[in-house]
Design a protein around this nucleic acid. Structure first.
Lengths: 207, 207, 207, 207
DNA sequence: TATGAATGAGTATTCATTCAT
DNA sequence: TATGAATGAATACTCATTCAT
């Protein structure tokens, strides 16, 4: 969290196919390097080298390395969002209980499969580089969830208060984070997730 | 998360009063700078300058800035632990429900009051620098909680499974993190914490 | 003679004219500084400054000052070798006695004219930095000398044993070193070299 | 060979037994460190630590590390000189040929047995630190040799010119240096030394 | 546009030396 | 006298960024 404001926006948007490929190579290179080394050792020269483009080209499109990371995070979150959305909406006919268990399972799988990258993004990349892309997606995700919730509420006469809804999201986030990034011996993820789902479903029924 | 192993141990333990003061000044300076600027801009030269000691003195006791941060985290966690312990054990006559609500309130207050520093420590400082001191304290904290739980179980015939205990800790962590670091408008912390406490107490009663 | 292995190889070989000029400036600067100050006060920052390039450029091509010195020694030895080779082969019609006297004279002149630089290279630069370039040239020089010797042996029925050949080289080296680097008052180089030549020529004739 | 003059003399001469022991420990520590690491990594703090004295004590007696090295070299050369003198004078009844062969053998053994330390002293320690102690001993050694030579000349009617005497010393030095510090495969020291002795003895007889 | 050589401010780290105790 | 904590100038080396080609 550097004190001075850093420009996180791309200098120009690539239009031609070649430019698009260059920018994409830079972003993928950044992702690869974050995976391998974490945030702190990341350098623009490395990004250019691994991307197979010249350092000049990186600065042609990005004002600095922070902007590259921001673009990468934005792209990553969008891809996660798309994947989740497609998987969750294809099941929207299920009842809320099945949907909720499915949802939790999907999130767990996503975090588990992207463990190392998410560890770097959540725990090393400076806060300021994440806020922009995360905020832009948060609203959409919230809308999505609320729509599902509304559907269920109507259908099953549920009455989920905003506080309970909030609780559902924070506790789920906390549990997934714990299971993946700070696993405890003797604690089985499956059992915990099942127990979590039971509790959440019960809350929704207002027990 | 740098790939190569970094030495996190102090070179010397200060024995004389003068050297103890020097080391303490270095650690406090490090804390102040993390608060003000976050982890990435932290430099050993800044640490020395703010501590009012020479750069040579920093390297007299620490192999590098990572070790200074580690020492600071260790000291900080110990102070948090002591504070929590004294506050929680002074209430051990309360029943488990009161104790649990008290406990959650204490943790929230602690996180809230140390918001900025914890934000840096939890989300910017490389993982490897936190593991060592956190692990050393984790066992103690766990013992403390288990003792309280055991007392309560005996007294109130509770039967809290390990999975439920795990859930209690991850969901509490997730909720506190959410409330403090990603607050939502229209969501009141008090209400959410109250709701969380209700749920947790109910779990302990196995409802 | 530092204990840990130091990288003595260039990071990049300059290809463009501009970079070749940069590398050559660095090497010449290193040579100049060794001449003026000896090995120990040599710094990469000084090398860059005297070369008129930025410190970054030094590290663009060399991993450290040791590698710059090694490159300089390599270049220097090659230039000495070329000079000696051209001067000695142009006289290959002379008989062995004239050739030997000529050879010793050439070497003395070379050492004398490069006295200060050789003093630094032979007596201050850590051993490890000299071995690589010296070894690479040694074989060539030896071949050159052996060819001359072989020609002479055939022509004049000489029978120089390996031990005598070895002795010729070590005694010549010792005498040149003594005359140039630790001159004695009242001892005239010319007389000593003449005497040395007499002795060596006699050895070759097996007297 | 640093440009500015460095003070190489001891600040004070230790008088009491304890002070003498301190100074001796410092000198031995310096010797040990030179043996292990060579000249360049030598530091005053290391010297003090290995000697088991405080850094303050080093500066109590020496103006800097160069003076410690100079003192060490002086002591070492004196010990070599004493050893050689006692071994050579005990044989002064032998004839010059035996004496010369004995002398060369002694020197070879001395260099061989002190190979690593001499390598550091001859090829890494800056020239300026060696000149002072070496010059002080040179005269004595020369006197010693000249006395022996004079005795032999009278006894055996030899007529060794100063040039030949000089040649004897430089060629011996060159050969010993070559054999010990740059040994050649297939070249046996013994054979070379025997050959060298033969040649030198012949010179003395003016053949 | 793309390149990559060059830049140099910035950072980590060492180590000779001082000086209060 | 001895100690060793403290100093800070000096040095090695990195890396974001520029700009001539």
């Amino acid at each position: 969290m550097t004190t001075d404001k850093i420009d996180l926006e791309m200098k120009k948007v690539p239009r031609q196919a070649r430019s698009k490929a260059t920018v994409e190579a830079i972003i993928q290179s950044c992702k690869l390097l974050l995976l391998e080394q974490g945030y702190n050792p990341l350098t623009t020269n490395d990004i250019a080298r691994v991307a197979g483009v010249s350092i000049g080209s990186v600065y042609e499109y990005f004002p600095g390395k922070e902007a590259v990371v921001t673009a990468m995070v934005r792209e990553l979150i969008e891809s996660y969002f798309k994947k989740l959305k497609s998987e969750i909406t294809s099941k929207h006919n299920n009842n809320y209980e099945t949907a909720m268990r499915h949802w939790i399972g999907l999130l767990f799988k996503l975090v588990q499969e992207n463990k190392r990258l998410l560890q770097v993004l959540l725990f090393e990349v400076p806060y300021s580089l994440r806020i922009v892309p995360v905020d832009s997606i948060k609203a959409e995700l919230f809308t999505l969830v609320m729509q599902g919730a509304a559907r269920s509420q109507n259908q099953y006469k549920l009455n989920v208060t905003p506080e309970v809804l909030y609780l559902i999201s924070t506790t789920t986030a906390g549990t997934l984070t714990g299971l993946v990034f700070a696993p405890s011996p003797h604690i089985e993820s499956e059992k915990v997730l099942n127990e979590l789902s039971n509790k959440i479903v019960a809350w929704m029924r207002q027990e």
